[in-house]
Amino acid sequence: MSAFMQSFLALRERKDYAGIIDSIPYARLMGVEFEESGEDSLLFRLPYYERNIGNTLLPALHGGLIGGFLENAGLIHLMWVRATLEPPKVVDISFDYLRSGRPQTLYAQCQLTKQGKRVANMLIECWQNDRAKPVAVARAHFLLS
């Protein structure tokens, strides 16, 4: 097992959510936070930071940043539920942008649609004030081995 995965599982044992984010430099740069929200369920949060803005006129969060937040949520979720013993690899990810991301906290949650032996299919959704009004949704395939 890689040093990264050993460290991840130790941090998971202690529920050291911030420690996990610190082990993923880009997630720390974005400013991601998360915690358990039920059995095998995680709630991801991205508080608003000016550095994440992609359109200064609206203003709105950068679409690529929203994508990175969703992809990162999927990766952490898969490792958290121990779908894999090594960090999964993204094969492909498809984003639908439904609303612009306003300068406020963005939330995300993942749904493991299917976990096969080698590939997992996942649905990842993010929203702001209202869960029923998603900002973006992602569908992704992850290689597990």
């Binding site: 890689s2 040093a3 990264f4 995965m5 460290s7 082990s23 993923i24 430099p25 880009y26 997630a27 720390r28 740069l29 990162n72 990766l75 960090p87």
Partner: peptide, 8 residues
């Protein structure tokens, strides 16, 4: 600081 996995 753009890395996704500190190990690799």
């Amino acid at each position: 600081d753009l890395v996704g996995n500190g190990s690799n």
